[in-house]
């Protein structure tokens, strides 16, 4: 990987993280926060866009930078797990299980949907 690609990757990772912070904040603000919808929102939105990139035939360095750098950072696994643990420790095990399975399967559904949408371009 060239030096320029490393710099671009770092920059896109930084942008993705700030965008995630702001999205989670806005979603929590609107949803009232009983359920960790902010993390779910970034994860589904990010998976959808990765799907669109794949469907649109984006490959190579562009795909690495956007899907791996920007959207890889925009989406998060750690908060998904910590949110689920948080729900369980609030004595809401059903909500924790829902958070785990809905995220997993809706994520798969959105990346497949995104790929179909991307194929239309």
């Amino acid at each position: 990987m060239s030096a320029l690609a490393v710099v671009a990757l770092a920059a896109l990772g930084g942008v993705g993280a700030v965008a995630r912070h702001l999205t989670v904040f806005e979603v929590a603000e609107r949803s009232g926060g009983r359920f960790p919808l902010g993390t779910l929102a970034v994860n589904l939105a990010g998976s959808l866009v990765v799907g669109v990139l794949l469907g649109a035939g984006v490959t190579g360095a562009t795909l690495t930078l956007l899907a791996g750098g920007l959207l890889g950072s925009y989406t998060t696994f750690s908060a998904w797990m910590a949110d689920s643990d948080g729900l369980a420790r609030e004595h809401r095990p059903q909500a924790a299980v829902v958070n785990i399975f809905v995220s997993l399967f809706a994520g798969l559904a959105t990346i497949i949907l995104g790929r179909a949408l991307g194929g239309l371009f």
Partner: peptide, 8 residues
């Protein structure tokens, strides 16, 4: 958040 990823 940057280290972990859901979309990948």
């Amino acid at each position: 958040g940057g280290l972990t990823t859901f979309s990948t």
